[in-house]
Simulated assay, not measured.
Amino acid sequence: MSSFFGAFRRRLLTPPVSETTMEVRGFHVKNAEAKQRLEYIGEVFLKGYAYAVEAGSPAEAEELLETVPRDMRGFAYEGAGMGAAVYDSLPGHGGRLQGLLAGRGRDHDYMIYVGIGWAMARLPKPLWPDIRSTDPLLRWLALDGYGFHQAYFKTAAYVRTPHVQHPFRWRGGHNHYTANAIDQGIGRALWFVGGTDPDVVTDLIRAYPEHRHSDLYAGAGLACAYAGSVGEDELARFVEGAGEHRWALAQGSAFATEARIKAGTVIDHTHLAARVVCGTTAEGAAQVCRDTRPRTPEAAGPFPAYEAWRHDIAAQLASSSLVSKGADQ
């Protein structure tokens, strides 16, 4: 049971649900169904956040998170990643994030690392978690989460003025790559800003300078596969609109597919997105992610191993598609 102090932490630290409504955010509304799903995702995220800051221990937080419906549980763990990082920043507190990742959260590690980035966007820099102690490969997802937060809550600065790129430095390494990782998060947020309408999202991406499109499409690809609320024809249109960035889009979708398979939260849409966007089965897309995952998570070259991983996923999916088309002819 959570303590009085846990309940107080929840009331003090949890953002209001109203912050996630489409009206408050000023996002595009495609239809009532998409609006309802996106707002529900926001509610579940905040529920996971509250569980992490209110619970008396990581184990108790885990018990609460496991009560969330399976198809939405990843969003709750994402919120818990943010909540755990915020909890650990409080005087006299610690171990919440580590405990979360050591338990059932290890199956949701992609989402938890994204949640860390949300906390970084909300906390003063001196209170950021020591990113150097985290997984060198997955820590880049924290910047994805940071970029998502900024585009979601600071839409005027990060979306409505697309030619402005905001400087960022951290202690996670390869500071010249941080803008790329943040753009991947911005791209993921554009799926929400555009209300899951692929035509609107495509137009939003095209407003940014060309050199940013690949990362933006990768993020949007992750969101369209994980969050869904889009049909087969719409996905096909999104793929077509991506043009030369089609395999960056597929790489993001493959990440989403692997995240759901690893966590056991696969839904019908997972299979649809894998087929339409990645050109393979859900298990096939996830296997590509597993097969290409770097054995050495820290790279000595000019780019992090994370970027090499993303590149290899996109290349293998593209190669597999060419082989498949050749066999069909």
Results as ranks from 00 to 15, higher is better:
residue 322 L to W: 06
residue 173 G to I: 02
residue 104 R to T: 03
residue 226 Y to P: 05
residue 103 G to R: 09
residue 248 A to N: 13
residue 104 R to A: 05
residue 83 G to V: 12
residue 225 A to C: 09
residue 204 L to R: 08
residue 98 Q to A: 15
residue 7 A to S: 14
residue 201 V to Q: 07
residue 10 R to A: 14
residue 89 S to A: 15
residue 46 L to K: 02
residue 144 D to E: 14
residue 53 V to Q: 08
residue 121 A to T: 13
residue 124 P to N: 06
residue 193 V to T: 04
residue 60 E to H: 13
residue 224 C to Y: 11
residue 265 T to A: 11
residue 241 G to Y: 04
residue 201 V to P: 10
residue 305 A to P: 03
residue 211 H to E: 15
residue 220 A to H: 12
residue 138 L to N: 01
residue 56 G to N: 01
residue 312 D to G: 02
residue 329 Q to G: 07
residue 282 A to L: 06
residue 68 V to N: 06
residue 181 A to T: 10
residue 221 G to D: 12
residue 12 L to P: 00
residue 115 G to Y: 08
residue 254 A to I: 00
residue 182 I to S: 03
residue 155 T to M: 08
residue 11 R to K: 13
residue 103 G to A: 14
residue 67 T to N: 12
residue 255 F to A: 07
residue 78 E to Q: 14
residue 258 E to G: 00
residue 222 L to T: 08
residue 166 H to G: 01
residue 97 L to A: 13
residue 221 G to I: 12
residue 59 A to I: 12
residue 178 T to W: 02
residue 255 F to Y: 14
residue 293 R to A: 10
residue 152 Y to M: 06
residue 200 V to K: 14
residue 315 A to E: 12
residue 271 H to E: 14
residue 314 A to R: 06
residue 48 G to Q: 09
residue 232 E to T: 11
residue 182 I to G: 02
residue 43 E to F: 02
residue 154 K to M: 11
residue 162 P to N: 06
residue 214 S to Q: 14
residue 284 G to W: 11
residue 186 I to K: 09
residue 65 L to S: 09
residue 218 A to Q: 15
residue 235 L to A: 09
residue 9 R to E: 04
residue 274 A to I: 08
residue 315 A to D: 13
residue 126 P to V: 10
residue 88 D to Y: 09
residue 282 A to W: 02
residue 37 R to F: 06
residue 1 M to S: 08
residue 258 E to R: 07
residue 134 T to I: 00
residue 71 D to H: 11
residue 147 G to W: 11
residue 121 A to R: 10
residue 284 G to A: 06
residue 10 R to Y: 04
residue 297 P to Q: 03
residue 133 S to N: 03
residue 312 D to R: 15
residue 200 V to A: 10
residue 206 R to W: 03
residue 288 V to C: 02
residue 209 P to Y: 07
residue 209 P to M: 11
residue 36 Q to T: 11
residue 134 T to H: 05
residue 316 Q to T: 15
residue 257 T to C: 10
residue 154 K to R: 15
residue 324 S to N: 13
residue 307 E to F: 05
residue 251 Q to A: 15
residue 225 A to W: 09
residue 83 G to L: 12
residue 92 G to V: 10
residue 265 T to C: 10
residue 27 F to Y: 08
residue 189 A to C: 13
residue 271 H to D: 10
residue 321 S to R: 15
residue 161 T to P: 00
residue 181 A to D: 11
residue 168 F to K: 00
residue 300 A to Y: 07
residue 47 K to H: 08
residue 11 R to T: 07
residue 311 H to I: 06
residue 10 R to M: 08
residue 199 D to S: 11
residue 38 L to I: 03
residue 110 Y to L: 03
residue 101 L to A: 14
residue 308 A to T: 13
residue 125 K to W: 12
residue 294 P to W: 06
residue 193 V to H: 05
residue 301 G to F: 08
residue 187 G to D: 11
